[in-house]
Write a protein that binds this DNA or RNA. Sequence first.
DNA 1: CCGTATCCGACGCGATACTG
DNA 2: CAGTATCGCGTCGGATACGG
Lengths: 154, 154
Amino acid sequence: MYSLHKYGKYDSDRDKFFPYGTDWHIGLFLCMYERKILPNLNCGLDLVAEVLYGKWKIRLLWFINEGHKRPSELQRKIPDASKRVLTIQLNELEDQELITKKIYPVVPPKVEYSLTEFGKTLIPVLSVLGKWGDENEERLREVILKRYEIKHDE
Amino acid sequence: MYSLHKYGKYDSDRDKFFPYGTDWHIGLFLCMYERKILPNLNCGLDLVAEVLYGKWKIRLLWFINEGHKRPSELQRKIPDASKRVLTIQLNELEDQELITKKIYPVVPPKVEYSLTEFGKTLIPVLSVLGKWGDENEERLREVILKRYEIKHDE
DNA sequence: CCGTATCCGACGCGATACTG
DNA sequence: CAGTATCGCGTCGGATACGG
């Protein structure tokens, strides 16, 4: 069974603490979740992968670097992303000290993100990545799309 | 209802074809699955992200480049990965023309992977990534691990 | 304008057992 | 040794509705 705490629930059977926000019934963190599985952090490549992991993170860094700083603005530049996920990934980038957030105490609310000095060092690295992608654009598009063609036989 | 074909099942209700390997009951491709959702392929960064997406792909490229070519060898270098996923990701890298596979007709089976010329062009790019990760190793480890500390209040 | 909560489909991948 | 099949947990992220 479980007992209630101020900030969540404790499941004594599994000896686990589930903060609020947990979907208790299926035991997953669905909203503003925290991960349970530690990632690999052995080498530089692992560490980079970890901070860039997230569907829109690279794009967010890129656009913030280009001077698009407000959430609504970023939302407009990345219309395929939901507001929810942009918020989550911006928070993660902030936690990872790649960007900072400035909140203006006005109505309606105004928020601006900027790259930190640390975040700025990542930009040239992303450029190298993007350059390779651009140089091989056609070939990459081709081999990637190959996987999505269903091989019917009639 | 659905009808059987030589290479899968056709669901007329949904006008979809499900190749074998599909877990029919929950409608997912669980084993050797194919993705349903097209990724973004707008710019170089998207394309790179797509070929590197996969928990072990970078490491596989890295080790193959270092001369560890046989599946069992790669398995030993990456003990945390299951054989299943290594196979899947090696196949993907092969489909994406970053590596080639050579099968020797012997018993017991012998297989060797190598980087293609295309694949080799990716190595310096990965080096840049890894270098940034190595240079900022401590800071990265710190900010990443921050997220995994559970904030109890008692 | 900015953020949160709920619900849910899609997906990554480990564990395990099995084949040739 | 190399690969496939089955099962199931953990996670990402979209859709939608709501509150300050």
